[in-house]
């Protein structure tokens, strides 16, 4: 009985949050098939780990968003995914993008907004939020001092907030 009610509460949770979480995943993994698989993993993780969610530490969505983002970045880093991307690039050269399940990440949710920012800022949010690089890694990649990466990223986030704010 209780088990049934728990499942129906979870079903309700899925109905309300799956669309927004799916768009978060698509912002990182544009392939809709892979993104659907990740969404599935994300909800199973949410189900298993809901007891670790601390209501005093933030909103439920914020917690789920971070679960989704972490899962997407893990997938992005996986060997499988990277090989798949290489193959896809090869096939796309031959067959063009017609019929591909690829979504253009530039057009999805938060990423679309990030694209409105100045390049210096955009790059930092892209690398840290959407690609999951640490500030240390970014500092080495872009050959910018770590302190600059930190302050610039924070300025970028403030700009981002200004752009989202209605």
């Amino acid at each position: 009985m209780l088990k049934q009610r728990q499942e129906s509460a979870f079903s309700y949770l899925y109905d309300h949050y799956s669309g927004s979480l799916y768009s978060v995943i698509l912002g990182i993994i544009p392939d809709r098939e892979i993104a659907s698989d990740i969404l599935q993993d994300v909800f199973i993780k949410i189900w298993r780990q809901i007891e670790t969610y601390d209501t005093t530490k933030g909103r439920l969505f914020t917690w789920m968003l971070n679960v989704a983002r972490n899962a997407s970045i893990d997938a992005l880093r996986s060997k499988n995914y990277q090989q798949g991307q290489q193959n896809r690039e090869l096939t796309e050269n031959v067959y063009d993008a017609a019929g591909s399940t690829q979504t253009n990440t530039d057009k999805i949710g938060l990423r679309k907004i990030v694209h409105k920012l100045k390049d210096d800022y955009r790059v930092l949010i892209e690398l840290s939020y959407f690609e999951g690089f640490t500030q240390d890694e970014i500092s080495k990649m872009l050959r910018i001092p770590l302190g600059t990466v930190k302050t610039r990223l924070r300025t970028a986030l403030i700009q981002l907030k200004q752009v989202i704010k209605p």
Binding site: S20, Y22, R32, L39, F61, L65, I108, I113, K161
Partner: peptide
Amino acid sequence: SVLIEEQAFENAVAPPPFV
């Protein structure tokens, strides 16, 4: 948090039903 949540809701993409 609310801002990010609203933003994500506004841009929601329906996942395939089989998921």
